[in-house]
Design a protein around this nucleic acid. Structure first.
Lengths: 348, 348
DNA sequence: CCCGTGGATGGAAGCGTTTACATCGCGCAC
DNA sequence: GTGCGCGATGTAAACGCTTCCATCCACGGG
């Protein structure tokens, strides 16, 4: 705090070489003590450490990664507007889980958000040009080039959710979205509903499609033919859910059940139903997806499909770490599918 | 997508030199076209661009920053557990604002979270060792070394909120927290309350202290002596607010007004009051702080103090950009204080 | 007393860029 | 027909670090 900055202007950061000279050793030795690695005599170590402290030496990462070809950092990229990132507990849970796993390691975690085409470009550059050693991709949309770019640059990658397209030779962790959709609708059927609509997610996202497929599966399994008019897409947000539910209600006044493909949308749907004077679950039974914390406090409490977010986050971290440490030898292509379960509450 | 990866294993990324050779120019010229900078003949430019495309060249950032001494990235560091980062709209708003400002520039924004001492160390290293050109510090706690470390390394920095300690020669943007506390309590007084308690934030954070000082100011201005038993600290979270309010109520059954130093805490306080059977505002009038979106939907809707978050975020971005572009010449030390305003709703 | 052994150390070659600085033509004014 | 200026290009020196390899030294066994 005292001797560190030799005046204003450009404060000249000391280099390893200078530290070494001041300690009376070679830069090779200095480097060895900085990296705590090779065997160094106690005397030399001490001298170097003293010099480091006195001169306020800080290693230059650029120089180091230039030769080591590592940065010791991994990125989570969130392809999603900040409003959803910060409002949908799904992201919070994933980031928490990954962050917890990474915290114990020496990796530094950074979050990158993509909210516009321009930012997408910047992030693509950022991750491919060597700022990070590995990346976790969240919330993929179809047509996202990131998986291919990263694969092309052979940068270890794990995606949250099955990536689209054929090129996607990428490890991923996913929930059994299709199965989840199925059990949700099966439940609706089991409580006697037959005119079951669905609010889907944005159909350029795989989980949205999968959940919708599950909806169709269940319906067909019960001998019911899914119809277009009973399907309306939302955008995984509260407002989107309200809008979609309103549309559905207008188009199908007779519906008696609805599967809403995410809890935030379900909250919106609940509002729409309330405004339309429908009672839940008496008039319309509703099942959501995600089991966000708020689901238990909704009016009525939400019956919903839970995906094991913590487990999924941990799995992603583990998969990435495996790729990162195995380096060249690793050619595993792991796909982990976590099963979902129905959480019964009052809404259906 | 086809010719890019010359096989498995280590796919050998081409270097600038190789590109140059393939294009029949020197690496200097190649560098010039990559950087779009100096004057290059159309022929050369074209040749280089073709080679780049064909070989799938991607610049190596480490090498580049080693010589340019820039990384073109800036960090937002959040010294806060992820649960608060993702649940308190304050952070969402700040990140949104800064992100929006940065999006138009060529800077890449990264988010760093600090949730444990170990992560603190890692982040300290990360930002001082040259991964970033500038940083925005959010949610400072007293004793945080980051401001000093960054100043010592002469890395442009802006903090959200006045930093503690004397060493803090740092630009910052803050709300007029003290003034905000004052108008909140003045309002409580103006509606006839005299036994006014307060739930503060964690007292190792400057805004918490400032808001509390404002509370005292207003009380003293009205000839009332603040007492210890009317003060209880929360942690800026919902649950903390509920806990603190409960304590306050137990200790001072006679209280008729309360200033809660953040809206999330106010939501919790509302719950505590409800459980204790106190009507708001009839029995106890309550004023919050922040004006989060949910404040308008609380029961009853929250009277609260609004700080201009968007404006503050924009100011922080601007301050940082100023330091970043002026480089050596910049020695401004800007302190921007944004004024707060009372938003009257039903709770007081 | 000499040699082998092994640990500590130093020399120096890169890692992939950028960027002075020098060089090279070429056209134009004289 | 020279010389000059200027734009395009190349040469090579950094940037700060890691690491291979060689060297050196002390010590113990033959």
């Amino acid at each position: 705090m005292s001797t560190q900055s030799p005046g204003p202007g450009t404060p000249h950061r000391p280099t390893l070489g200078e530290v070494a000279r001041s300690a009376g050793v070679s830069s090779a030795t200095a480097s060895r003590v900085v990296n705590g690695s090779a065997r160094v005599s106690p005397a030399a170590r001490e001298a170097v450490e003293a010099a480091i402290a006195e001169m306020g030496y800080v290693p230059n990462r650029a120089a180091r990664s230039l030769v080591t070809r590592r940065t010791d950092t991994i990125a989570i990229v969130l392809s999603e507007p900040e409003e959803r990132v910060f409002s949908d507990p799904f992201f919070a849970a994933m980031v928490r889980g990954i962050s917890a796993a990474v915290a114990e390691t020496d990796w530094q975690l950074v979050l990158l958000m993509i909210q516009s085409p321009r930012e997408r470009l910047k992030v693509e550059r950022y991750v491919t040009q060597g700022h990070v050693d590995g990346v976790v991709l969240m919330s993929l949309h179809s047509g996202d080039r990131l998986p291919d770019l990263l694969a092309g640059a052979s940068i270890p990658t794990v995606t949250s959710g099955r990536p689209t397209g054929t090129a996607g030779f990428v490890s991923y962790v996913d929930a059994d979205n299709r199965g989840g959709g199925r059990i949700a609708v099966d439940h609706l059927l089991s409580v006697g509903r037959t005119r079951i609509a669905t609010v889907t997610g944005p159909m350029d996202m795989v989980p949205a499609v999968d959940r919708f497929d599950g909806y169709c599966d269940a319906l067909r399994g019960a001998g019911i033919r899914p119809t277009k008019s009973m399907v309306e897409a939302g955008d995984f947000t509260d407002e989107g859910g309200e809008r979609a539910m309103t549309t559905l209600l207008r188009r199908n006044p007779e519906l008696d059940g609805v599967f809403v493909a995410s809890d935030p949308m379900a909250m919106g749907a609940l509002r729409a139903l309330d405004k339309a004077g429908r009672r839940v679950p008496e008039d319309v039974a509703l099942v959501g997806f995600d089991d966000i914390p708020m689901a238990a406090y909704a009016h009525p409490p939400l019956t919903t499909v839970r995906q094991p977010l913590d487990q999924m986050a941990a799995a992603m971290a583990e998969l990435l770490m495996a790729q990162l440490s195995d380096e060249s030898t690793y050619d595993g292509l792991d796909h982990i599918i976590c099963s979902t379960e129905l959480v019964r509450r009052a809404s259906a």
